[in-house]
Amino acid sequence: MIQTENLLHELIEKHGNTRDGLLPILQGVVAKENYLSEPRMVEIAKALNISSAEVYGTASFYTYLFTKPMGKNVIRVCKTISCKMAGKQEIIKAIEKTLKIKVGETTRDKNFTFIETNCLGWCHKGPVMIINDEVYPEITPERAVEILCEMDPKHLSKF
């Protein structure tokens, strides 16, 4: 709890306690805690002197501002047409099989959340996967599995 207060304090110090600081503050919390819990949103609302409904309403608009618990690592695979034509479905299958979850789900140990997204801006090098901020263009199913196993060797043994 103490730590959280520090985090919020730091973020407000950096981005100010006015409304235009809201997005950077929310991003900062997600970066540290993976998602925006209800108590956290209430605290932020208080600090910025706006209603918590406003904070929730704003956060829920944006796909990067999770309002539900997410895995420590977020895997995104582009599902838009150029990547579809380049074989993104094979990547999806490989990831699902390795992590034993479906698109949209989180592994039980909360290490990975796997989502499909719209165009990620790498269409000439599809299919593309992004884990957190790291980009993997021209990914193959084999390479995707390899990367996941490097991040969490547990999946290696099961595969």
Partner: peptide
């Protein structure tokens, strides 16, 4: 830059 098929920016 989010238009599908754009990556020049």
């Amino acid at each position: 830059e989010g238009e599908p098929g754009t990556f020049k920016d």
